[in-house]
Amino acid sequence: MNLEEIKSEIEANVPGCRLEIIPNGSPSGQHSLLIDADHAFAVSSYLRDATNRQFDYCSNVTGIDWPIKEISTKVKTKKIVDGMEKDVDEVVKTQTGGYLEAVYHLFSVEQRQGPLVLRMRTEDRTERVHLPSLTPLWRSAEYQEREIFDLFGIVFDGHPDLRRLLMWEGFEDHPMRRDYVDPDDYEYEPTAHDEVLKRAQAHQAAEGGL
């Protein structure tokens, strides 16, 4: 299964869609296809219904949180210092992340192909967190999209029954996000170490200490 081939095939059949191949550097080399939210439903319908693809089985849906991360890289540039040209290291800061991602693993039982990894990204992590639901195409995505809605906070438009799955109604946080802070219930930690030890000590300090 060639991802480049699939990409050009989709581009020919779904006009206007923006696709990008996200390479995977690990030995498994399982590259994935980033699809834009506006055309995600059309692209997925094509993948499911095209006679030469027939991705009829969605085995897994999961979420990823990408908080904003600053990467600083050193770039060598030439600058004129005191009338002399010198090589100077300049630090260039770039930002990555700042979005939530939903990842779908598709298989074709008919064509014996897969997995095809699809990714969708929200625009940011707070306000514009809407993605189209693919549950109308693959029923197996229903509970898993609910789980992502619950734990990451992505809102799936077009989902038939979007409620929290693991946490209760009225719970406000999204526990699988990187910046989730769990409640301060560290009053009894008999074997505390590392992160738990820090939390337990902070709790004790807040309580007034021993």
Binding site: W168, F171, D173, E189, P190, A200, L210
Partner: peptide
């Protein structure tokens, strides 16, 4: 159920946190 945790988080009539000296941990 509340917005972040159960309320109350414990019943103090039933349970009190045993004293653990974590300053040496």
């Amino acid at each position: 159920f509340s917005a972040h945790d159960l309320v109350p988080t414990q019943n103090s009539e039933v349970w009190k946190a045993p004293l653990v000296n974590i300053s040496i941990a």
